[in-house]
């Protein structure tokens, strides 16, 4: 296992009162902290070459986990081993083997062309000339960096900036890459481009990757495995394919009836929503065939209109967040 996390807990200590200097001094001498648990004893492991998506709503603990894995934060308790190392011992050695992209904050020098930042990174990571050139050529080709490498970063579009940022995090050929919201704020084309790049780097170079997002599309299109995290707990850790299979079989049937029925019975389908004479049912195609179900429906009741909808992964994730997730046990 390349990354091993066991019973990881992270509490933030929030200063109760941050206003005013005298309060601040008082706080310093007699700290009055409010504990806020960001990560609540999570465990998972990732093997070499895997690509894992971390998904969850804002404040779920995704970023905290990435910060812990990249050595910025120290865990409150629990064990973290990455590449055989503790991220907090021997920081310099550890961080030279990883790459981190903070989607919200660029590491590029704002007033200078991106190439200057690359130049600096070359010195920082002691990258040999040949390797540097090889990588720059590769990035230029795959991400079209050459189009904007000479422009000051402040003039770049968000998509261009993110492409350069990702290249900057990879220029020293890290074995592991952490992305914190790499697609945040991007338009669909730019997102697609970045997903494609990430995917191919994982497949061709075998770089282990972990990234956080709250865009399900990111995960569907790039990852084999996803970890759903909510309020500091892992609520689902499974293959994206399995969830997809599950979602493939689930359908929603919305029916508008011609008159009021007190009770409606449809074998194999459960009513999940009711609004006047319009009712929504849920069923699985591997349990009930659609034609049979509809025939049944038509023969028993007076129907004005009906639609059948596929369930996308996004709505399954939503169910998982909402705590219900009847579906989840059967897939994991």
């Amino acid at each position: 296992m390349l990354i091993q996390v066991e019973q990881l807990v992270k509490d933030y200590q929030l200063n109760k009162n941050q206003k005013g200097f005298f309060h601040a001094i008082k706080n310093l001498l007699m700290p009055e902290y409010q504990k806020k648990r960001a990560v609540n004893g999570i465990s998972f492991s990732i093997s070499e070459g895997e690509m894992v998506g971390f998904i969850g709503p804002n404040g779920a603990g995704k970023s905290t986990t990435v910060k812990i894995l990249s050595g910025v934060l120290k865990p409150t308790s629990g064990k973290v081993i990455v590449n055989g190392m503790d991220p907090f011992r021997n920081r310099k050695k550890y961080v030279s083997q990883i790459g981190v992209v903070f989607g919200q904050r660029t590491q590029l020098w704002w007033d200078l062309p991106a190439e200057d930042t690359f130049d600096l990174l070359k010195t920082i990571y002691k990258i040999p000339d040949a390797t540097f050139k090889k990588n720059m050529d590769m990035f230029s080709e795959m991400l079209d960096l050459h189009e904007f490498l000479h422009q000051p970063v402040r003039q770049l579009s968000l998509g261009q900036r993110m492409r350069a940022d990702i290249a900057a995090a990879m220029i020293h050929e890290p074995a592991i890459l952490f992305f914190d919201e790499p697609t945040i704020g991007l338009d669909i084309v730019a997102k697609e481009r970045i997903r494609e790049f990430i995917r191919s780097m994982n497949q061709e170079k075998g770089i282990t990757m972990l990234f956080t997002t709250h865009d399900m599309q990111d995960i569907e299109k790039t990852c084999e495995r996803m970890i759903v995290i909510d309020r500091g707990d892992i609520v689902c850790d499974s293959k994206v394919d399995e969830i997809r299979q599950f979602s493939d079989s689930e359908r929603k049937l919305t029916v508008k009836f011609g008159r009021q029925y007190d009770r409606i019975e449809l074998p194999g389908a459960q009513m999940i929503k009711e609004a006047g004479n319009t009712k929504t049912f849920q069923f699985r195609t591997n349990e009930v065939k659609i034609p049979e179900l509809i025939a049944e429906l038509m023969s028993r009741y007076e129907v004005l209109d009906l639609t059948v909808q596929e369930t996308d992964i996004e709505s399954i994730i939503k169910q998982i967040y909402e705590g219900g997730a009847p579906a989840y046990e059967s897939v994991s």
């Binding site: 910060k67 990249s70 050595g71 910025v72 920081r91 310099k92 050695k93 961080v95 030279s96 990883i98 981190v100 903070f102 919200q104 904050r105 590491q107 920082i124 990571y125």
Partner: peptide, 10 residues
């Protein structure tokens, strides 16, 4: 948040 970046550099 720039400071966090410093922490992930060798």
């Amino acid at each position: 948040g720039e400071f966090d970046r410093f922490l992930v550099r060798p």
